[in-house]
Every structure is written in structure tokens, then in C-alpha cells.
Nucleic acid binder design. Structure first.
Lengths: 213, 213
DNA sequence: CCACAAGCCACGAAAACGCGTCACACGGTG
DNA sequence: CACCGTGTGACGCGTTTTCGTGGCTTGTGG
């Protein structure tokens, strides 16, 4: 952890040439790592060098989108950390990037110091984000359970519901839980009533959305 | 935003008395806010004063758990920001707290400076976390969509799938899409095949989990 | 032009499901 | 004690779903 490691290899993928060289300078001069620059995802992926430790990636690239790029980079270099560095601050872009495998998300308004620090942070296993983005991310969690859903399922009912979500038929559920099919049927009906639905689909959807399983 | 605001009111809920007073000191002396301390959630909730701007909350309290406390605080003071401050760094505790409505999560190993900064950050709309916790949080996202599911549904199939997720019966779907119920049935079966499931529940679960809708 | 695949629509029989209703045991609570 | 919630099991009936099988259009390529 604290040995005199070789300088991390950092790729910069950014289509604005000025910004690209500025970024490289920041990374190099701050002693954060050895920067290699590319003007596009395609160019970076065409490189046959060894895997970098981190990639600083613009999301609004011409040609391949940054989001698509993330997946390709992650596929080819699973251990490489990716930090998004873009002007986009809308939710969908952020979540798409994070889902695709990015570990950090910065905006272009950040200071050079912060950027170098972010690269270090992501290499050390952190997830650099602006405070606002961090808030969006955690908000996505609490929204999953809107609170006040107030659906109390008994233990058995919950168990049956889990089976339904797993795609089992009633007969299979009866088999797995060692119950009569009639009993399972009764539970399912109770679940329907409590969830205010009247189809299997509705129950499963509600269960997943409200985090009942 | 930048007006000479009155000092934010900050509650400290922590059962270790020494730590409690230390925290209060940090918050006050750094000029972050006006600290009021409580030894338990119950005590804080019994207070009839005005809503605080932020609460620093220990999760391992005797009596009511911090997690349960979050919900109660959020219910009573919806606009109050909550920062967890605990020794627990296991995933479940973290996600429970975030789902319950906490906006930040720090460990007790953090420096006093960082704690005061975190309180300021959470009041300004951020989500202070340690880098490791931030990583856990974003990791939870990429795991949601394992990528490369590669399921191509035709437009009609997708439409039908959406209806299923909405809890409609085939008959209702046929009605809504102006199709014969037999046709709907065929689409449903095709969806089953493409999704490798054989029940409505499985299809809905897969659709939601893979974000096909 | 014809074949062939893909998407779209339909029938009918067997199986599963949705629902009302009922019964009994068991552990708490008023 | 009586009552209620929970867990378990059951019957019957009408509806829905499942599934094998078929036909019909469109578009693409040989």
C-alpha cells in the first residue's frame, strides 16, 4: 500500500485538444501518474499497450459515446478505474455512467487540484464525485423505498412473494415450501389483497418497486 | 445562498458522553453551527424545539437503533439533513441508513475537521461519505444492471411487457392495445422464451431488474 | 420471382389460476 | 374466556393462461 509504487498509468480520453493536454499536465506535474492522451474511445481502444490504472473519460465525445466507451473499457480492462469528466450534470447521464461501470463522476467546472485528487482517490478505491452528484446518488436509494408504503406481510406471505418474484409457479412454491397448493393459493390471494393488485405481474412489480423482497 | 445566514442548528445524537461533547465543540468552535446534544434518539425526539438544520447521528445507540431513529427524524423534520457517524462500516448498515433517509455517512475514524466539513456539506446539499463508502454506493448501481443482457424485444413485445409490469391481465392488454387476446398471448409467450422464464412473475421480475421497461 | 426469416395474428384444448367460502389449531391480548 | 391474527388446509367454479399449431403480411437477398 505504501511502498514506492511505480507511477500509475492514467489515460486521458478527451476530444478537446487543449483540455486534453491541460489534463495530462495536471496529472503528470502533480505527480499523480503518467498520463497518456487519446482523442477518442476508438483511439484508446486501438492502443495495444498494457491496461492503465485509471481512465479519465469525457462523456460527450464525438463518435462513440462515453457511456458506450465505459462498457468497452471495462470489458477489456476490468481492473481499470474510470472517472467521468464532463459537462453533463443531468441525472440520466450520471446514472448511466455509473451503471456502466464508472467509479467516479466529476464536472468540468472542478479545479485542477480536485481532478488530480480524484484520480488518486479512484485508484485507491474511492469514488470521487461532486457533493451534488453524491446527493443524487444517495437519493436514488431512499427513493427506492418511498416510505409510508406500510405494507405488512407475514413471514410466510413474504416467503411466498419471494418465490413468485423468482418466477416459480404456485405448484413449485408449494413444493419448495412443503405446503399444499391450496395454502400457497391462499397466501397469494392475501398478498394480492394487501398489495391492492389482482394479477401476478402487479404483485411482482409492486414487490420489487417497494423493496418488499 | 451567500447572505449572512444565522448559524445552522445542529443536533448531536450520541450516547458516549465524551464523544458527544467533543463533537459539539468541533461544530461550535469551527463556526459550523450551533450544536445541541442528546444522548439518545428518544431524548432528541422528545425535544419540542424547532427543527434543526442537520443531525449528526450515531447508529449504535442503546435503546432505539439509529436506523429507526432516521425514519422518525425524517418524518418529523423532513427538511433536516442527517449525517450518520458511527463505527459500523458494513454494507447493510450503510444501505439501510441511506434508504431510511440519511444523506451522509461517516466513520468515527474521521478527523474532527472532516466532520465539521461534512456537516457543512450536507447542509449545502451534498452527501459526505468516506471514499470507501462512496465506492460501495456506486458499486450497488453497476450491480443492478449486469450489462450485456442483450435481449432484443420487438416493439410490440416490449409494449406488452410494459403492460404486464403494470399489472394488467392479458384481456386488459388486448383491450388497451386493441388486439385479440390470442395475439397478446403469443407475444407473452415469445417474451417468456426470450427472457428464459416460464411464468408471468419471472418475466416481470426480469424486466424490472434488467431495466427492459 | 421465389424463398425465407421475422414480425403479427388466431384457434382450441389442457392446465393453471383467481376467488369465495369454509374449517381447525395456536398464541397473544383485552 | 372470547377474540383476533396467523398459519395451515380444503372444495368448486368460472376465468385466465399456457402451449402446440397454424395462417398472414412484409421485407431482404439469392
Amino acid at each position: 500500500m505504501s511502498a514506492p509504487l511505480p507511477l500509475p498509468a492514467v489515460w486521458i480520453v478527451e476530444d478537446h485538444s487543449l483540455l486534453r493536454s491541460t489534463l495530462a499536465e495536471i496529472i503528470t506535474e502533480s505527480g499523480t501518474g503518467l498520463a497518456t492522451t487519446f482523442a477518442s474511445c476508438e483511439a484508446a481502444l486501438a492502443s495495444d499497450g498494457p491496461a492503465p490504472d485509471a481512465i479519465v473519460l469525457d462523456i460527450g465525445l464525438s463518435g462513440m459515446s462515453g457511456i458506450a466507451g465505459i462498457r468497452l473499457f471495462k470489458e477489456r480492462f476490468p481492473a481499470t478505474e474510470i472517472v467521468m469528466f464532463t459537462v453533463f450534470d443531468d441525472r440520466e447521464k450520471i446514472f448511466e455512467a455509473l451503471c456502466a461501470g464508472a467509479s467516479g463522476y466529476l464536472l468540468k467546472s472542478e479545479s485542477p487540484d480536485r481532478i488530480a485528487a480524484a484520480v488518486r482517490e479512484v485508484i485507491e478505491g474511492g469514488s470521487p464525485m461532486t457533493p451534488e452528484i453524491a446527493r443524487l446518488v444517495v437519493a436514488r436509494f431512499s427513493q427506492l423505498q418511498p416510505a409510508g408504503s406500510e405494507v405488512h406481510l407475514s413471514e410466510r406471505e413474504e416467503e411466498v412473494l419471494r418465490c413468485l418474484v423468482d418466477g416459480l409457479a404456485k405448484k413449485e412454491i408449494a413444493d419448495r415450501l412443503d405446503l399444499s397448493i391450496h395454502t400457497v393459493d391462499n397466501y397469494v390471494r392475501r398478498i394480492y389483497r394487501k398489495l391492492h393488485v389482482n394479477t401476478l405481474g402487479g404483485a411482482v412489480a409492486k414487490a420489487l418497486r417497494e423493496g418488499l423482497v
